[in-house]
Amino acid sequence: MSYMKEFTKGLVKENPTLVSLLGMCPTLAITITVQNALGMGAAATFVLLCSNIAISLLKKIIPSQVRLPAYIVIIAGFVTFVGMILQAFLPDIYDALGIYLPLITVNCIILGRAEMFASKNGVGASALDGLGMGLGFTLAMLAVSSVREIIGNGSWFGIKLAPDFIQPMTIFIMPAGGFFVLGCVIALVNRISDRNAPVRTGCAACPNKDGCAGCGTDSDVKEAK
């Protein structure tokens, strides 16, 4: 597989947020303003890049019995590092991200990529995969937060768009609006990429199939249905 493909697959085709539906919690919680979404995206992308590189380098050392705790420790280390650096040098972004910054540790995109990709591929491919997935996550949050901030607050990136006499629809920056906008963005992406619901839900159509190889077979899935 070419290196370029490792990078671009995260942007649309296997977008972690809009296709794999991972990392829903930060996507819904932080997308109230575009600025927060970009801050969160940048922090998560950095952690994803670093953890993918580190886990790819250590994949032969980490025994499979303890791989998940080992991944979490490595990811938590990078998150703590980012938190300390932001607090020291960019306190405004640190304040804006609040509790969601330490929660990057348990962002399933990062653990998902560690388990599905970095633990099975080389350093270069893992780095590009992390960067692409991080950018895909950021782009998805950018799309959701743009809609929510424009409709819900009458501004974009803090720039006021709507005149004062138009009352913004506050529902869009509340949790219900988050679910609504996220659903619309997912529908739109499915429409653009011309993806139809698979006739039979099996492993072949699943974007995460690489990760669950060995956990269950195709027939198990069918029986469970």
Binding site: V66, A76, F81, A88
Partner: peptide, 27 residues
Amino acid sequence: FKPALILAAITAIVSALIIITYDLTYK
């Protein structure tokens, strides 16, 4: 014991790096 020892070693190394960062950035 080997997996547990490796996990402990990884945890120790990560903790050490975090302590260094904390000392460098704490005000």
